[in-house]
Design a protein around this nucleic acid. Structure first.
Lengths: 204, 204
DNA sequence: CTAATATAGATAGTGCCACTATCCAGTATC
DNA sequence: GATACTGGATAGTGGCACTATCTATATTAG
């Protein structure tokens, strides 16, 4: 399939596809001549994945590239991928160079007995968010934090249940990415609906 | 307090504060003369809140304005605020005009017996996300969705426990906003850590 | 075989957004 | 009264995600 068909089947304008090719979000097609290349179903799938990450979850192009790169590089080690895949700060941010020990996060992970990589970006995200809340006077007490962590644990069990460990590793990793990232808005939406319901329940 | 002190105490440059004033994220100060106005602690608090919404959660300036407006307008009806506060699409998006009935979401809400407003934007967000997942071939079965919803329910209980129903309604609403919105990255980070842990556990 | 169409790759331009800089006339303060 | 600061207005900046155009080639319809 040539680029115009890729565009037609994905609904994405040709110039945008070229842009994604330049940015490395989409691997180049198999060149058949100086001005001709051939794309396959994999490209189409990848293109849809890219659009979902950018459009639904609001990742930036460069964050998307990083995430996809991480998945490709570590397709074999699914748990690394799951943990690492999203340094993706909501906004630029570029990870403050200062690296406070963030004892609270370490302690929590230790207390729960979680086995997670030292470098998981989620550690830093968690630490920063707790710090921000504290600085705004809305500190979370330890018991609540533990409660949230336990719910996260059960969410993760549900998440992992969606995966079929017998599938091809790369496909598996892409599916994990899809479920990890794209489910995020859905889980947050569920939380907001549940909050509204719970708030209504308490105020009657 | 004049604008320079507001800037010094918040760490935000004066021109940016002026920009927020223009954009309506911060109410104007009490004018004492043609070129003089007085700001108070409330302005400082609001400014920090704005920064947190924009910086930590990545809301756009206009989304932030909408959210703050909604909170101010409905400080009395906390549960409405909690549910409504975040139509905030991750990225522009502007809510597709097509409005499919989204029967799945309605059914879920009915099944759970949740009492939420007809117009809660979270309904649409949820519907769209499920639709996207389906179109990418990563559909969620009903049982899993129910599982996630039940976990959301328990998260909401924890959330509401953080609020003190005796506090001033506006302050209460702002705190709710803080906890709803700023906790989001933390909850997602917890989920990713838990995923990595669970994945490691299953693969040993 | 030719004319119309399509293509890869390169370069430049666009529109939006979140600031940031500058200017001005009017205080405030020393 | 000189200097610094202020509110308000207007204009400029840099980054980002595209989008448009151009050129040299390739394919294809007639």
């Amino acid at each position: 399939m040539r680029i115009s068909e890729l565009s037609r089947r994905s609904g994405i304008p040709t110039p945008t596809i070229k842009y994604y090719l330049r940015e490395g979000l989409l691997p180049p097609g198999r060149a058949t001549a100086a001005t001709q290349a051939e794309y396959d179903e994999g490209h189409l799938r990848r293109l849809r994945l890219v659009r979902a990450l950018i459009g639904v979850r609001g990742l930036s192009v460069s964050a998307t590239r990083d995430v996809l790169g991480a998945v490709a590089a570590r397709a074999g080690e699914l748990h690394q991928v799951l943990g690492l895949v999203l340094g993706a700060r909501p906004v630029g941010d570029e990870a403050a160079p200062e690296d406070p020990p963030e004892g609270e996060v370490e302690a929590l992970i230790g207390e729960l007995g979680w086995n997670v990589s030292e470098h998981a970006p989620a550690r830093a995200v968690l630490g920063e968010t707790l710090e921000t809340l504290r600085s705004l006077g809305a500190e979370l007490d330890h018991a609540s934090l533990l409660g949230y962590a336990e719910l996260a644990e059960r969410t993760a069990v549900l998440d992992l249940d969606q995966l079929d460990p017998r599938a091809d590793p790369l496909e598996q990793a892409e599916r994990a990415l899809l479920l990890t990232v794209l489910l995020e808005p859905a889980l947050l939406a569920l939380r907001r609906l549940a909050q509204e319901n719970e708030s209504a329940r308490r105020n009657t």
